[in-house]
Every structure is written in structure tokens, then in C-alpha cells.
């Protein structure tokens, strides 16, 4: 994805067309299109509407969190705790939905005895935001590096999830709950709709609000931002709350789709999420990137997985390929950045 173009309001200049530079800047989009073409040619089932919707639905959960992660990484931070936070907030949401742990496995008549779906969602979102707020506080007030804070969060939230649930899942929700994961509007799965709407809102916030501008400023030069009156601490704290909210929203949709929440949900999810953001062209050093790139990055990973599965490629090889693409994406970006400097 383009670093230059995703930087706020960058210059449009009348320069001779630079094909190599263009390719390097838009590497993620070009690669995504190429992948779709290749899979479409090699595997007829790939382009079916059913399969494409399936890819989108799979992408939407980690993609939602990747949108939140984009805010964090733009400030030159990182959040490794998202997978664990998904587990913890999902369990609390499920607990509220069921009105307790007594009939945690009950499927049937008793499922309607719990609380309204909106309460369950709010509970999951509140836990996610509280976890993010706590970590953001440690980053901004205790001045512990985000990598360390959220590495601690990764362990602690997972532990809290196991403690809370006693290790077992909470399953069997009302149809009103599972609709959010399994329902469709027209033919589009609900999680995909929510993913798209969230991406749009996040894009508007980043590009068209004062807060969004401050996120970019904090990522590039926090001292300069501070000297110009940007509330650096508040901005930094808020990005962790935002990714926490994304975890709560994602876990609500995930548990609705699976009709279950469990303490081992989202294991290793942070790696998928960070990969989507980075493949999408957002710099780990902060200040450069955006939501559009992240959506492309998430789609790229989703399409790659799906295509390889359809072609019966082993999941071990998938992991190797995704790892290589991650490194290649960053190498392309470095190359594009070096060209711009010269």
C-alpha cells in the first residue's frame, strides 16, 4: 500500500511517471489483484460469490481488530494483547448474554433467560476498552514501552480469561445473538457489513478529524506535537482504548458466529492482525499508513489462505508463504521510501 498517498493530504506533483516507484508504493494492492487473478485462473471455485463472501467473512473479524491496531501502530505503538483481550471480553460478553455461568452449555429453552443482546455487546466492548485503557495508562503514565506493556497484557488477559471461565467455553446463545455472526443483509454476512462500516468510520476519523491528525503527528514526532499543543498523552491513551473497543466488537461477532466463547479464542490472533496492518503499508515506526492499506492487507492474507486451501496446499506451507509476504511487503516499502529520498 502507498505510504506517500496515505500520508495526510500529500502533495500531488507533476512529475514524470515512475513505474517502479508506483509499483513499490502500491505493492499490496497490486499483489492482491495478482493473487485474485491467479487463483481465479487456477481454481474455478475461487471466484464464486459464495466463496468470496466466505473470504470476506473470515477476514472481517481479524480485520476489525486490524483497523484498531492501525491507530496504535500509527502512533509508533504496538498491541500484542489483542488475542487475549478477545478471549477475555468475549467470555464476559457471553456471561452477560447467558445471565450467569449456571447453564453455560445449555442450548434451547433457557437461552432466552439471559440479558438482551445489546447488554452482552456493551459488556464485551467495555471489557475491551477497559483493558486498552489500562494498557494505555501504563504506556503514557508509567512510561513502559508498549511492546512490554502489551506483552504483559497478552499473558495477564489470557490468564484472566481462563480464571473467569474455569477453562471451559460458554456456549448456546439466543437466535437474536447468533444473528450478529450468522445472519445476512441481502447476501452479505453481518460481520462483513460491520467491518466495512467500521473501516469507513475509521478512515474518516483518521483523515478528517483533529484527533486523526494528532495520531499522525504523535507517530512522527511526539515532542514537536507536544510543543504545538497536541495532547500527546491523551491521544496515545485513546488509541489503546480504540483497539480495545475493536477487540470487544470483534469478539462479539466471533462468539455469535461460533455460538460459543472460550478462553483459548484468539490464540496468536495478534500476529495476523499486525501482519495485515504492516502488509497494508503502515509503518511500525509510526506516522505513515492508513486504514485503506490495512483493509487491503487483511484481504490479502484472507485471499491467500482461501486460495491455498482451495488448491489443497498444506496449512504449513500457508504459514511459510504469509511469513515471506510480510517481510517482502516491508522490503518493498523500504525500497519505495529510499527512492523517494533519492
Amino acid at each position: 500500500m502507498s505510504r506517500q498517498d496515505e500520508t495526510i493530504g500529500s502533495a500531488a506533483r507533476a512529475e514524470p511517471f515512475d513505474a517502479v516507484g508506483f509499483a513499490a508504493r502500491h505493492s499490496a494492492v497490486i499483489f492482491l489483484v495478482a493473487l485474485v487473478v491467479v487463483f481465479a485462473l487456477l481454481e474455478p471455485r475461487f471466484l464464486s460469490a459464495f466463496n468470496l463472501m466466505n473470504v470476506l467473512r473470515q477476514v472481517s473479524i481479524s480485520g476489525l481488530i486490524a483497523i484498531g491496531m492501525t491507530f496504535v501502530i500509527l502512533t509508533a505503538g504496538i498491541d500484542l494483547s489483542v488475542g487475549a483481550l478477545v478471549a477475555l471480553s468475549g467470555l464476559v460478553g457471553a456471561y452477560v448474554a447467558k445471565g450467569g455461568l449456571e447453564d453455560r452449555f445449555a442450548v434451547g429453552a433457557s437461552v432466552d433467560a439471559g440479558n438482551p443482546v445489546i447488554l452482552a455487546f456493551l459488556a464485551a466492548a467495555a471489557v475491551g476498552m477497559a483493558g486498552g485503557a489500562l494498557q494505555g495508562w501504563a504506556v503514557t503514565r508509567l512510561r513502559v514501552p508498549p511492546f512490554v506493556v502489551t506483552l504483559g497484557g497478552l499473558t495477564a488477559f489470557r490468564g484472566a480469561a481462563l480464571l473467569f471461565s474455569g477453562g471451559g467455553p460458554i456456549s448456546g446463545f439466543s437466535p437474536a445473538y447468533t444473528w450478529w455472526g450468522q445472519g445476512r443483509i441481502a447476501t452479505v454476512p453481518i460481520p462483513v457489513v460491520i467491518f466495512a462500516v467500521t473501516a469507513l468510520i475509521a478512515h474518516i476519523v483518521l483523515r478528517h478529524t483533529r484527533f486523526g491528525l494528532h495520531v499522525y503527528a504523535v507517530g512522527a514526532n511526539p515532542r514537536a506535537a507536544e510543543e504545538n499543543g497536541v495532547p500527546v498523552r491523551r491521544v496515545t491513551w485513546l488509541v489503546y482504548v480504540i483497539v480495545g473497543f475493536a477487540c470487544g466488537l470483534a469478539t462479539f461477532l466471533l462468539s455469535a458466529r461460533l455460538n460459543s466463547a472460550e478462553a483459548v479464542a484468539g490464540l496468536g490472533l495478534e500476529l495476523d492482525v499486525i501482519a495485515a496492518v504492516v502488509i497494508g503499508g503502515t509503518s511500525l515506526f509510526g506516522g505513515v499508513g492508513g486504514v485503506f492499506g490495512t483493509v487491503v492487507g487483511a484481504l490479502l492474507i484472507g485471499v491467500l489462505r482461501n486460495g491455498l486451501v482451495l488448491m489443497n496446499v498444506s496449512s504449513f506451507i500457508q504459514q511459510i508463504v504469509i511469513g515471506l509476504i510480510l517481510v517482502a511487503a516491508v522490503a518493498f516499502d523500504q525500497y519505495a521510501a529510499a527512492r523517494r529520498r533519492s
Binding site: 495526510i8 499522525y216 512522527a220 510543543e227
Partner: peptide, 9 residues
């Protein structure tokens, strides 16, 4: 040091 953010216009 001018206090500028070089990623912004």
C-alpha cells in the same frame, strides 16, 4: 529544532 512533523504537509 522547529518542532515539525515531517510526515505532514
Amino acid at each position: 529544532d522547529l518542532a515539525l512533523c515531517d510526515n505532514l504537509p
